[in-house]
């Protein structure tokens, strides 16, 4: 009896396996071709090619296409429209329910619900067919790549103007000690997500936000246990300019002037020195 159950299990397992791969290979008959395009009414042309190598390298390599693309049950496909953006989080929630619950509390989802189509869903940060682990240096959410990923929207002048987002987030970060350390490969250094969170990002005005004034000491305290309420009383993304942060601006002006004056004096000094040395040499040769 035991043997029969075991055999049955093995057979079922094999069947399941082959069913999956058969399923994907079926999709790949068309989607595995680089020449496969599709014309949508509003989009001119969209590539329908999915690289088998990208899929095989992703964390979802064992999953069948239809597990995410639930609307597809056979061929020909029923719907011609691409998946709407707001449907993507629901799609991922099939497996990632806990993340979905966090994400739907975030400013990003909030904005999407209000019709801000530029707000990101899962795939904007994680990618789609080639999703990689956060520990993989190729991942968009690998610590070293996070600033670039966030900056694709938060460093866009167009988006900033459209949705009243603060600018200079990337440059101020890159010039901070955290930014420099991360750039040169120190993964312990804080990246955007270390302070702002990941799925549950909220604006500083929200009392639940990790960067709300009341929570800042705790957020900094994750790495710097001595960070006090007194410490966090200052601005974080420091814009050094006349209209930005005054202190650093004054320091910079002071030193640039000081150094400029020093160099000017030095150049004059050298010029006078060389002229005098020549004059002396002439005098010496005249005397002799």
């Amino acid at each position: 009896m035991k043997k029969i159950i075991l055999m049955l299990g093995v057979v079922l397992f094999c069947f399941q396996k082959s069913a999956y791969s058969m399923d994907n290979s079926m999709c790949m008959q068309c989607h595995g071709s680089q020449a496969f395009y599709r014309t949508y009414p509003d989009v001119k042309q969209a590539g329908m090619y999915i690289s088998p190598a990208t899929l095989a390298g992703s964390v979802h390599k064992g999953i069948s296409c239809t597990q995410c693309h639930t609307g597809i049950t056979g061929y020909p496909h029923p719907s011609a429209a691409p998946i709407p953006k707001t449907a993507i989080p629901v799609m991922c929630a099939t497996c990632h329910r806990d993340v979905y619950d966090k994400y739907t509390r975030s400013i990003h989802w909030n904005a999407l619900e209000k019709g801000v189509t530029a707000a990101p869903v899962c795939s904007d940060c994680h990618g789609s067919h080639g999703i990689l682990k956060t520990t993989n240096p190729g991942a968009k959410v690998y610590p070293e790549n996070i600033p670039k990923t966030c900056a694709s929207c938060h460093d866009s002048v167009k988006l900033a103007a459209q949705y009243n987002l603060p600018l200079n987030r990337l440059t101020t970060y890159e010039n901070s000690f955290h930014g420099i350390a991360l750039k040169f490969g120190d993964l312990r250094a804080a990246n955007c997500a270390s302070c702002h969170g990941t799925h549950e990002i909220l604006p500083s005005s929200d009392p639940r936000s990790s960067i709300n004034k009341a929570n800042l000491a705790r957020t900094c305290g994750k790495c710097h246990p001595n960070a006090t309420a007194n410490f966090v009383k200052s601005r974080v993304h420091v814009v050094v300019s006349k209209h930005g942060e005054k202190g650093p601006y004054i320091v910079r002006i002071f030193y640039t002037w000081f150094i400029t004056i020093l160099i000017t004096i030095f150049v004059l000094y050298v010029a006078v020195d060389i002229i005098n040395t020549r004059r002396k040499k002439k005098n010496r040769s005249k005397q002799s």
Binding site: F231, V232, S234, R235, Y255
Partner: peptide, 23 residues
């Protein structure tokens, strides 16, 4: 330092250290 100084003071310290080094 964080236990005593506010962040802006440490930011300024870093800036002074850097510029003074250049000088």
């Amino acid at each position: 330092s964080m236990a005593i100084l506010p962040k802006w003071a440490i930011d300024l310290t870093l800036l002074v250290h850097g510029w003074d080094g250049v000088m």
